[in-house]
């Protein structure tokens, strides 16, 4: 989707950027329930209620209620004027210091033209040091902070959330218990955690709702009307923490 290079000073590693994720969410179109006709989205003026053609639509920033600064796409694009298409690495940091909350969208970096040697060298060196490269790149007219990681000889890039885009714990109101958990409760809960310890096996975890939804839609497409499941009663809640822990460990 993007051809450029990772640059570290004079070192240039030609790369191609590929999206690393894909959505399997079942996609629906909007239909009018009474006649099944497709729904169209029409852009209308909020003042006149009349439809507006695309060439009469501009982007505006509201400086105060009712006051707009109008900007063209070219002007918005002018905000980012990179000299070159480069992922400019500024620092290398220990991988375990970057909390995953910082990672946003994931990409793979493929080898760009004439870059096999430089790519393999950078990937091997990053793997040896266990470090993550932090840098900046302009993607889709927006400068992004990115993290570069190497794994199995493949460079991966994640866009990163800025520190002020993350909510800090002290912005939340977390009620402290008047009575701290007792040693017996902590011990019982520890047993429960140990009992549920396992491996991270993402390949075994499926989106069962999407699968059920697809099964239902396929049956409907064949003209069947499958039964819909009935809602279950929610579990009863218990106030006795220790009794619930004991029962869980025994189960």
């Amino acid at each position: 989707m993007w051809n450029g290079a990772v640059t570290i000073g004079a070192l240039t590693v030609p790369v191609k950027v590929f999206t690393a994720t894909q959505s399997h969410t079942v996609h629906f179109r909007e239909l009018h329930a009474s006649d099944g006709a497709p729904i169209e989205h029409r852009r209308v003026s909020s003042k006149s209620g009349r439809e507006v053609s695309a060439d009469k639509i501009v982007k505006g920033y509201e400086t105060s209620p009712g006051h707009w600064v109008v900007l063209s796409d070219d002007e918005i694009r002018a905000v980012e004027q990179p000299r070159r298409k480069a992922i400019e690495i500024e620092h290398f940091v220990p991988a375990d210091q970057v909390d995953p909350v910082h990672y946003d969208r994931a990409y793979y970096l493929g080898v760009g033209a004439g870059g096999r040697d430089a790519y393999a060298t950078l990937a091997a060196a990053m793997q040896r040091t266990g470090r993550v490269g932090v840098g900046r790149v302009v993607l889709r007219s927006r400068e992004q902070l990115v993290a570069l990681r190497a794994r199995d000889g493949v460079l991966r890039m994640s866009t990163m959330r800025f520190a002020d885009e993350l909510v800090a714990v002290d912005e939340l109101e977390i009620e402290e218990p008047r009575r701290a958990p007792t040693p017996a409760e902590v011990e019982m809960a520890r047993k429960l955690v140990d009992g549920l310890a396992g491996k991270w096996e993402p390949g075994k975890l499926h989106d069962s709702y999407q699968e059920r939804l697809l099964g239902y839609l396929r049956a409907r497409a064949k003209g069947k009307q499958p039964d819909l499941p009935e809602a279950d009663e929610p579990d009863e809640e218990t106030d006795d923490l220790l009794a619930a822990l004991k029962a869980s460990v025994a189960a």
């Binding site: 003042k47 006149s48 505006g60």
Partner: peptide, 13 residues
């Protein structure tokens, strides 16, 4: 940014 009708600066809905 919001979409506006260029001549009147009315918001687009």
């Amino acid at each position: 940014f919001h979409q506006l009708h260029e001549p009147t600066k009315a918001r687009i809905e």
